[in-house]
Amino acid sequence: MALVEISGLSRTYGEGDIQVKALNGVDLQIDKGEFAALMGPSGCGKSTLLNIIGGLDSPTAGTVRVDGNDLSMVDDQHRSELRRNRLGFVFQAYNLIPVLTAAENAEFVLQLQGVDKAERRRKALEALASVGLQGMEDRFPNQLSGGQQQRVAIARAIAADPAIVLADEPTANLDSVNSHHLIELMRTLNRDKGVTFLFATHDPKLLDAVDRTIQLVDGTVDKDVRRAN
């Protein structure tokens, strides 16, 4: 079943004569349980596409349906609700909330959802355990290494059981060992727990690990390759 359905999607920045087409008529479908990556050179529109799927940016033309919601039809508030309830985000620079501990960061989205304290604690600890951070629940981000911080970011993204996790260059700030471990971790979460991942990445190791690579060139889908498992 299609979790993300994109049709004729365009995104243009700027006005008048100075216009840049970041996306130009993208058609794409991501199914539940996929482990897929958007790839391509810098400026090809990977992050823009990820942002639009994540409800962080709006298309200039075309339609985007995420988990049954047509993003072109909803206002800011509903997009915020969708992000809170159905989407998980992992950013290149980890972007943890510096004043919250690892467990509190993992709990954050659950708290926004209004999940009661005991339940969100349980889910947050479970998520942290699944990324291998048992015993580090009470550490603040500045007491964790880069790799550990990105694991907390993944725990935060998966703790609330999102329909899809959108990860923008998740390994770009990590060394090769941490990058390898993180890719293994996300792969395991995908296989064992059925978490759907969509990456925007240049990282060859991550591209080797995904089941599907969607190559963007100049704002359009150039190649869409599925790897047989």
């Binding site: 994540g54 915020s80 992000r83 972007n95």
Partner: peptide
């Protein structure tokens, strides 16, 4: 600003 951007991206309501 960046941190607020993350909070909003994660779905924090503006009122909050």
């Amino acid at each position: 600003i960046r941190e607020f951007g993350v909070l909003l991206a994660l779905g924090m309501p503006k009122k909050r």
